[in-house]
Design a protein around this nucleic acid. Structure first.
Lengths: 194, 194
DNA sequence: TTCTTTTCTTAATCTACATCAAGTACCCTC
DNA sequence: GAGGGTACTTGATGTAGATTAAGAAAAGAA
């Protein structure tokens, strides 16, 4: 069943009865997307929380000089959305794109709110989820203020071990906040150091 | 009454009966702190969410070169805590210090959890609060990746209009992520531009 | 008040990283 | 297996902001 990953994920934080599991999964919409497709683009209103069951996505913004900044990668078992737009239902600034062929489960904002009313435990689940995102986001902000590019790269390797050999270098460069040229040079220096 | 600010704050998101208000305020602990006192230091386990009723606090980390990085200011009406430590109950990395004589209300983690059980609406309230923090934190990360120091300063002025003339420049410099020297120079250039 | 400490300014020099440019190694697709 | 993107490398030069240093101004403490 395609739901085992998401249900195990939830079971880490709240216990659902079989009936509740059925209610929940009925609210989900399953989707398969080819690589390099957009699930959301700059200016869209974000209507869904996306849960990844296979493949990988990235969320990024484009600044006024046209440079892309990757905010997050979403390998299997992770959620991704434009939180600003999802909450406010105003046009967002995030682009969400598949990096390879990908399967996702969509939970619409409308269904998410029904879920809060029907099964209040989900308020708890999503609160915990958002708390963890907040901690990660704050830590990344601290890192970007206080670490060198090389240290940020080492942190990235720890945080996303499955992604390193699996992702174009320019995407990693964008995530840690340097140009692909500098990233390439930095890596060759790191290899020489050993 | 010292509770009107916090109750109005909550009323923006959930409705509480008079009884519920009483339960809630009974969980709060009121405190007055002189300026330059620490409410939390690096390595402490964070036991409280802090709500500011008057004065001002700042939360900052110190990196390995000894440089301080301000993560947030907390003027009246704002919450502040070391979220990582509060959630995990492990030693945190944040220092929380009063910038002037300050009055706060403390909600202990223990009481917060009792509140979730007794008045489940508070799950909703704190979920929304954390969601908003997450959006702000992500926006600040995007800003730090894509804007110049001058643009970040302009954003700061919009976000914290009450604080600008009221806060030592070095604190603002630390928040936007530059040295006090560079900040001073930048401001004099900005004045000349007009 | 005077003394001490902290904050702010200005200037010279330095560095991590960006930009521009050109070449090389890949895949994909037909 | 030839052509055309896209990804990666390497080098020369440019720049935002850091560092160091020293003096001026402001704010607390006594």
């Amino acid at each position: 069943m395609p739901f085992s990953l998401i249900l195990n994920n939830i079971a880490k934080h709240i216990h659902l009865t079989n009936d509740e599991q059925d209610i929940f999964t009925a609210y989900l919409q399953s989707k398969t997307i080819k690589r390099k497709q957009f699930m959301l683009t700059d200016g869209d209103i974000c209507k869904y929380s996306i849960f990844v069951t296979s493949g990988c996505l990235r969320g990024y913004t484009v600044d006024k000089s046209g440079i892309e900044h990757v905010l997050s990668f979403a390998p299997p078992g992770w959620w991704i959305a434009d939180m600003y737009s999802l909450i406010s239902q105003k046009p967002g600034i995030l682009n969400i794109e598949t990096l390879e062929d990908t399967e996702v489960l969509l939970l619409s904002k409308v269904n998410q709110e029904k879920l809060y009313l029907q099964i209040p435990k989900f308020e708890h689940f999503f609160r915990v989820l958002v708390e963890n995102s907040l901690v990660a986001s704050q830590q990344r902000l601290i890192d970007s203020l206080s670490l060198t590019a090389e240290e940020r790269y080492n942190n990235f390797c720890k945080r996303y071990p499955t992604l390193i050999d699996h992702l174009p270098q320019k995407q990693i460069a964008s995530y840690i906040g340097v140009t692909p040229e500098f990233f390439s040079r930095m890596r060759s220096v790191m290899v020489r150091k050993r």
